[in-house]
Amino acid sequence: MSNQFVHLGDLGPRPGVLKAWERVKHPHGWWFAECCAEFLGVFIYTFAGTGPTFVFNLSNFTKVNNIGSLFGIGLSYAIGLVLAISICAPVSGAHLSPGITIAATIFKGFPPLKALRYVIAQILGAFVACLVVYAQYYEQIKVLSKALEAEGVLDVVNFTPQGIAGCFALYAPVGSSLRYVFFNEFICTFILGIVIWACVDHTNFYVPTSFISVVIGLGYATIIWGFSPVGLAANTARDVGGRLMAVAIWGTKANGGAYAAIAALTNILTACLSLVVYETIFADSSRVVSPDRHHHLHAQAAEQEYRTGNRPAVTHIPEPYGSSEKITA
């Protein structure tokens, strides 16, 4: 199969140090590359959304208009997801969410040990991203904290969605009923789960591989724009990683209380439930794999063959790549 494709290594030798690393990575270290991809993907997505969240809250505190908005936050998270999936999917599949990883483990045979590695990497990615944003805005945070403390309202607002800590950890709106917060989280993440499973369905002709990240990003932005004021986490990694970062900075009072369980666990439940619903109603053995996905699946198999050394020699560039010229050393 692999001789149907041209690999990067067929186009010319890579630097010696990279070839040496590949000789280690291919048989023994691919899991590390996958974990790094999951870490980086969640880092990018969290980093992209956390910065605009701080800017929005800062504008509310300083009464400066037009430097942040809910629309900007949703769009930033969406763009972050598009970037994260586009960069990381070729290596790890870009789960970027413990809910997706756990659902794939329960229902699709994803290896449990690999799933554990993914979940740890995902949470760590969000944790580090929040720390980085905190460091970037440290001077502003210090000034704002002193001002709020002088007014005697720091402890009142800090651990709310509008507070400083609320830019990094996720909290339920003040005075809200956790039953309604749970209901909102359940509905939003269930719909998002359906969107995700539809996008990764190999028989879905309407979402080409290159548009998967865009559609998922739009789905994520939609629930942020419409329903985040009720209370929305949507991703266990983003929630737990950000909450651990807040606890590391502000102590256990930043833990979020009972809401923490809703934020961390609901989307895992809905990822599993949405997969069951999608497989029951939408998926069917009669559906045809799209040519785009068919080619992609064969390319993935060719990469696996290349990494294990079980591939025939490539003597020409096949027609799908637009040329039949021989490859010269």
Rank of each mutant, 00 (worst) to 15 (best):
G125P: 01
L192G: 00
K63F: 15
N204S: 08
T189L: 04
S213I: 03
N267I: 13
V181W: 03
N65G: 13
T203S: 14
G152R: 03
I216C: 09
L170G: 00
E34K: 06
N310D: 15
I327K: 02
L232I: 05
L192N: 02
F61H: 11
S286L: 06
C188Q: 02
G231R: 00
A129E: 07
G163N: 06
T280P: 01
L40I: 04
I141D: 02
L40A: 02
T328M: 13
V6A: 08
L11T: 15
E303W: 12
A198V: 09
R14I: 11
I212K: 04
H7F: 15
A264M: 13
H294C: 13
G152Q: 06
T222S: 15
V6R: 10
A172P: 00
L154W: 07
T50Q: 11
G51S: 15
G242F: 03
L297S: 13
K146R: 14
T236A: 07
I249E: 10
D155M: 11
A150D: 09
S228T: 11
L8D: 15
G242C: 07
C35I: 05
S324A: 09
K326I: 10
Y259V: 13
D292T: 08
A248M: 10
V6K: 11
L244P: 03
V133H: 06
G99S: 05
H7D: 14
C36L: 11
D292L: 09
H316A: 13
G242P: 02
Q4M: 12
G93R: 01
